[in-house]
Amino acid sequence: MATQTQDIQVRDKREVKSDAEQTIPGRVFSPNVDIFEDDQALTIVADMPGVPSENVSIDLRNDVLSLSGVPSVSVTEKEEYVLQEYDTGKYFRQFTLSEVIDQEHIEAKLNNGVLRVTLPKVGPAKPRKIEITEG
């Protein structure tokens, strides 16, 4: 093997402690994200395992982007746990955006539990030279 890849380390899910109480009980976790940008767009990639696309919601208002996802439940009532190493619950995370985003062209894709949101930037306002007329 030419390249050696590192082994993935175990990390516990980070639970979100919110001031506002939830109407539906259950635990809420903060998904791990990658955030990067180029000249055209800001992209957020979030791991949300177990969430089908119909359960994802993306909301942008007042420069605050909210991502949330509810996993589909697959554990039946007959089953009893023998070993439980991870907890399941909703995903929720918010970001304050510093760029002006073209809201009409936000794109989101969900693939194998990975959500990718592309937020195109509104082109920078061109500096406008203001003519001053004398007289």
């Binding site: 380390q9 175990v10 009893e80 439980q84």
Partner: peptide, 8 residues
């Protein structure tokens, strides 16, 4: 990794 949940 990966963490496992085992039930029966």
């Amino acid at each position: 990794f990966p963490l496992l949940n085992v039930s029966q």
